[in-house]
Amino acid sequence: MQVITGNTQIFGILADPIHHVKTPQRINAHLVGEGFDGVMVPIHVRAEGLQAAVQGLRAMNNLAGFVVTVPHKTAMVALCDEVSADARLIGAVNVVHRTADGRLIGTMLDGEGFVAGLRQEGIEPRGRSAYLAGAGGAASAIAFALARAGVSHLTVANRTTDKVRQLFERIHSVAPAAQLVVGTEDPSGHDLVVNGTSLGLRDEDALPLDVERLLPHQVVAEIIMQPAETALLKAAKARGCRVHPGAPMLASQIPLMAAFMRHGHTHGVEHAS
């Protein structure tokens, strides 16, 4: 553990639950590697306390920024003073820079992190059909990134189909030619199957899609990091599918998150290889 002094810059991560987060370990290792005097700490905040917690963080003069994860990504948009065009379109924020005068600037890196993580493992989404479970913050970011990456068509399944339609309207505003389909629990007929929900974080969670319909040629990807092998990945493996865990999505974002929290932009930062 690095020595923490009165000069150390503080970073946070806001989540509920928080026990599963892996970002502090990764960010702290990254900061040490860069020789930067900073430390990230996990901050357990429930939805009803989010606004008050964020107000408190504004007043912390040695706080440079924070990461936002489940379930706060969507709510965070309204709590920022400024958000990137992407974050506004996606409707979610997962990393925030605090300026010296306490203003909060937010952006969303989940989508590009997810696609970079796939490509790192030799899975190219361009020209493939994709199925995505979920239309919340992270899922919306992934939907945008997959559309931009050039998937042949994208099916999104969510309990509330209204949410999916609104997401499609926003995607069409930047990718008018994207082939978008409102889906069901059935992921068959797609090359890439993605869980963009938080189902799988807890042991008692239902499966996010109908695993009985999975076939061996499909790649099944997860955004959940803990457990490393979710019930979905276990079931997909048993059906002969190639599986892609949640870890690469975070690994690809670490240098981008660190840069954004410190400077309010990611320019000049390469993706982790």
Score class of each variant (00 low, 15 high):
Leu192Ser: 11
Arg98Thr: 01
Gly127Phe: 01
Asp81Arg: 01
Ala116Tyr: 08
Ala53Asn: 14
Gln2Asn: 12
Ala221Phe: 02
Asp186Trp: 01
Met60Glu: 04
Asn61Ala: 09
Ser273Ala: 07
Val269Cys: 12
Leu192Trp: 08
Leu215Phe: 05
Asp162Cys: 14
Leu50Ile: 11
Val211Asp: 03
Pro17Asn: 11
Asn28Val: 06
Ala52Cys: 10
Ala141Met: 04
Gly134Arg: 14
Leu199Phe: 10
Gln226Ile: 13
Val39Ser: 15
Ile27Gly: 12
Thr69Ile: 00
Glu222Ser: 05
Glu48Cys: 14
Gln120Phe: 14
Glu229Asn: 10
Leu31Gln: 10
Val219Pro: 00
Leu250Trp: 06
Val194Pro: 01
Thr197Lys: 10
His44Ile: 02
Ser173Arg: 15
Lys22Gly: 12
Gly137Val: 03
Gln218His: 08
Pro216Tyr: 04
Ala247Asp: 12
Thr155Gln: 03
Pro17Arg: 13
Pro255Glu: 10
Ile254Glu: 04
Gly117Tyr: 08
Val32Tyr: 13
Glu34Met: 15
Glu185His: 01
Met108Ala: 12
Gly38Gln: 09
Gln226Gly: 05
Gln218Pro: 00
Gly113Pro: 00
Leu192Gln: 11
Ile123Glu: 00
Ala251Cys: 10
Glu121Phe: 01
Val32Phe: 10
His271Tyr: 13
Val220Ala: 07
Arg213Thr: 01
His172Cys: 06
Arg88Ala: 06
Ile105Trp: 13
Asp186Glu: 00
Gly12Glu: 07
Lys237Trp: 02
Glu185Pro: 00
Cys80Lys: 06
Ala52Tyr: 13
Ala100Phe: 00
Glu34Ser: 15
His172Pro: 11
Val70Gln: 14
Cys80Gln: 05
Leu201Gln: 08
His267Glu: 11
Thr161Lys: 08
Asp110Glu: 08
Ser188Glu: 02
Val243Ala: 08
Lys237Glu: 05
Ala75Phe: 02
Ile223Ser: 01
Asn94Met: 03
Ala206Glu: 09
Val54Ser: 12
Glu169Cys: 11
Ala251Glu: 14
Ile171Gly: 14
Leu132Lys: 11
Asp205Arg: 11
Glu212Ala: 09
Asp205Ser: 08
His271Asp: 06
Ala47Thr: 15
Thr197Ser: 03
Asp162Gln: 13
Gly6His: 02
Gln120Asn: 13
His244Gly: 12
Val83Thr: 10
Ala135His: 10
Glu48Val: 15
Val156Tyr: 08
Gln55Val: 14
Lys73Val: 00
Arg202Val: 00
Arg98Met: 01
Thr197Leu: 02
Leu79Pro: 10
Leu132Trp: 07
Ile105Phe: 07
Val95Pro: 00
Gly122Ser: 01
Val68Leu: 05
Leu232Asn: 14
Thr74Val: 10
Gly122Met: 03
Glu124His: 04
Ile171Thr: 05
Gly49Lys: 13
